[in-house]
Amino acid sequence: MKLEDKLFLVTFVPDSETHLSAIKQETCRTCAGKPCISGCPAACWEHEAEKNEVLVSFEGCLECGTCRIICPYHNIQWKYPRGGFGVKYKFG
């Protein structure tokens, strides 16, 4: 089963502003492994080749915190979404 089909089953209440972002793109450029991209269970992070930037789609974030901890440079700004926003599990 494809990840996007699974994420389709999850309820999200998307906020208008992001709760996570890469702090310095220069740091991401020097990062060889970019483990945030492969490690995120919801594939929120991607590398945009043209601008050579690491971008995030926060709307599908499962709020696990993996990216925050896996980043070797502590270069991810991570806070919890505002109350009531973000992922809303039916089963959990």
């Binding site: 089963m1 990840l3 699974k6 483990p35 490690g39 269970p41 594939a43 993996t66 896996i70």
Partner: peptide, 16 residues
């Protein structure tokens, strides 16, 4: 999580 970085695997691929 350190092995997730080292092995460069995607969690969903492991589950699949």
């Amino acid at each position: 999580t350190s092995d997730l970085a080292r092995l460069q695997v995607k969690p969903n691929d492991l589950l699949e």
